[in-house]
């Protein structure tokens, strides 16, 4: 088992390296220079000094220095925020995003899995139709629309939740719910497909022949197998939820990591782009590793094979 984890870890490091290199290549080929942003009128000498300081004239050196620094937890300077370093920005925003993303995915699992199970068991019936409509609606609503809608209803009219901001528990539910809707849709759909695969299996019949109740056959026997595809989706889902929440952050004024992704890209802030991509792929690799370990634990057929 340890050997398997180590090999997965190696593979993850390779993936991160590939992603880093690819992003780097894209960043250096893109025209534009963050130092010439309209709001920062630098004198030419100062600009030149900065370029030299951050090895911006020598791509290879920059490539090397950045990754060496990143390994030590130093992502270098950002060109958009004057008094901050990338490491400070990430240290500040990452916990917020992790909490929000984790809550959103947790909520998505708690709602999406039962939705998918019921929909598969009552296939073709009214409940299936209702759940399918819910899923399709979740898929068809842009986050900024649901976010604004929830904000207006619960924040402005009902005043059950603060209109925006971050810091207390009361700030959590609305953004987490908004963020979770697309994930609910996807998880419900994965669960439904997995359950349909399993429900006709012989081992369900065996369970019923033993005298197991329908509920237990569905929730204990079938779901054990049907949950596996959902589990492997949870890795990417966590990474996405923790970094792709910029719309939710913007709507609810949450100081998370997502806005930095977008701002870094919009400002062509090479340092911040690379820092964000590294954080994203590290989260992705880490959660995929966790998921793999859980998978091996839940599906004994895989454990021996990896």
């Amino acid at each position: 088992m340890i050997a398997v984890i180590l090999r997965r870890l190696m593979l993850g490091v390779v993936t991160i390296a590939c992603v880093y290199t690819l992003t780097f290549l894209m960043v250096i080929t893109i025209p534009g220079n963050p130092l010439r942003q309209s709001d920062r009128n630098l004198p030419p000498e100062a600009e030149q000094a900065l370029r030299v300081r951050y090895n911006m004239d020598n791509n290879w050196l920059y490539f090397r220095q950045f990754i060496v620094g990143a390994v030590h937890g130093d992502f270098g300077p950002t060109f958009t925020y004057a008094d901050w370093t990338c490491s400070q920005i990430i240290a500040d925003a990452l916990p917020v995003s992790v909490v929000l993303g984790f809550l959103a995915v947790l909520f998505a699992v708690v709602v999406g899995v039962p939705l998918g199970v019921i929909s598969a068991v009552k296939r073709g019936g009214a409940l299936d139709l209702a759940s399918l409509s819910l899923v399709l609606t979740c898929m068809s609503l842009p986050t900024f629309v649901t976010g604004s809608g929830l904000l207006i209803v619960f924040g402005v009219y009902l005043q059950w939740a603060p209109v925006g901001g971050w810091g207390t528990v009361a700030h959590l539910p609305l953004p987490a719910l908004t963020l979770s809707l697309p994930f609910i849709a996807y998880i419900a759909r994965l669960t439904r497909a997995g359950m349909l695969d399993v429900l006709g299996s012989d081992f369900i019949r065996t369970a019923l022949a033993k005298g197991v109740s329908r509920q237990s056959a569905v929730w204990n026997h079938a779901l054990r197998v049907a949950f596996l595809p959902v589990l492997s989706y949870l890795g990417p889902a966590m990474a996405q939820a923790m970094t792709g929440s910029f719309v939710v952050e913007k709507v609810f004024g949450v100081p998370g990591l997502g806005q930095h992704f977008v701002n870094a890209a919009l400002n062509l802030d090479a340092g911040l782009i690379l820092a964000c991509v590294l954080v994203y792929s590290t989260i992705l690799v880490a959660f995929n590793l966790v998921v793999d370990v859980l998978y091996g634990w839940l599906d004994p057929r895989i454990a021996g094979a990896v």
Binding site: V19, L22, T23, V262, A264, A265, V277, Y280, V285
Partner: peptide, 9 residues
């Protein structure tokens, strides 16, 4: 690897 890149970025 491309799946491993943040989509919106």
């Amino acid at each position: 690897v491309l799946y491993g890149l943040p989509y919106i970025l």
